[in-house]
């Protein structure tokens, strides 16, 4: 009996499950539970005193760059933005904590979606060390608490495959359509 090991580090990915994608009940459930994860949109007027819309745009742009640079799963960025908006909708926050909040949201979203989640240390480097790993971990608990540990948000990406499967698209164009969604 010969035993040898040929483990590789390559990421092998699961196939889309037709049981899910062709079942209308799944799409219906997604639409129903999506509501639970929608932030109250008017938080700039109602909740925040310090944070302005352009600041959200800046931090979102930075978060997008980090996710691109790290080649994170494509769900990480929209999920992190969902956490950010839900947090800001309930918690008045000072603007000097906004980037820390953005980093925490990516930290959490990456843990849910990435095969190899972003480390605390790496995220701190991306802020040019304006935050510390200690702050990141402390705020992780604050954000989890404020979001009531409901981290499995329904995000726009969840609908893409369901919609594509229902459209009369030519097979050879599928890859391109998916890329542009």
């Amino acid at each position: 009996m010969e035993l040898y090991c040929l483990e590789s580090d390559a990421a092998v990915r699961a196939q889309p499950d037709p049981n899910i994608l062709y079942d209308d009940r799944v799409l219906q459930s997604l639409l129903t539970i999506e509501d639970r994860f929608l932030p109250q949109c008017s938080y700039f007027q109602r909740v925040q005193k310090d944070i302005q819309p352009y600041m959200r745009r800046m931090v979102a742009g930075w978060m997008h760059e980090v996710c691109e640079e790290e080649k994170s799963n494509e769900d990480v960025f929209p999920l992190a933005i969902n956490y950010l908006d839900r947090f800001l909708a309930v918690m008045p926050t000072r603007k000097n904590y906004l980037q820390l909040l953005g980093a925490v949201c990516m930290f959490l979203a990456s843990k849910l979606k990435d095969c190899r989640p972003l480390s605390a240390e790496k995220l701190c480097v991306y802020t040019d060390n304006s935050i510390t790993p200690r702050e990141l971990l402390d705020w992780e608990l604050v954000v989890l608490g404020k979001l009531k540990w409901n981290m499995a948000s329904v995000i726009p990406n969840d609908f893409i495959e369901h919609i594509i499967r229902r459209l009369p698209l030519p097979k050879d164009k599928l890859v391109m359509v998916r890329k542009h969604t």
Binding site: S29, F107, L108, K111, L112, P117, S119, A120, E121, P133, L136, L137, E140, L141, L144, W149, N150, M151, A152
Partner: peptide, 24 residues
């Protein structure tokens, strides 16, 4: 400890929350 709440735990809580829904 340096990376906070383990992703296993976050995903487990997620699954249990979905289970709470009887229909699920």
């Amino acid at each position: 400890l340096e990376d906070g709440i383990p992703n296993q735990a976050l995903r487990e809580i997620k699954a249990l929350q979905e289970i709470e829904d009887n229909q699920h």
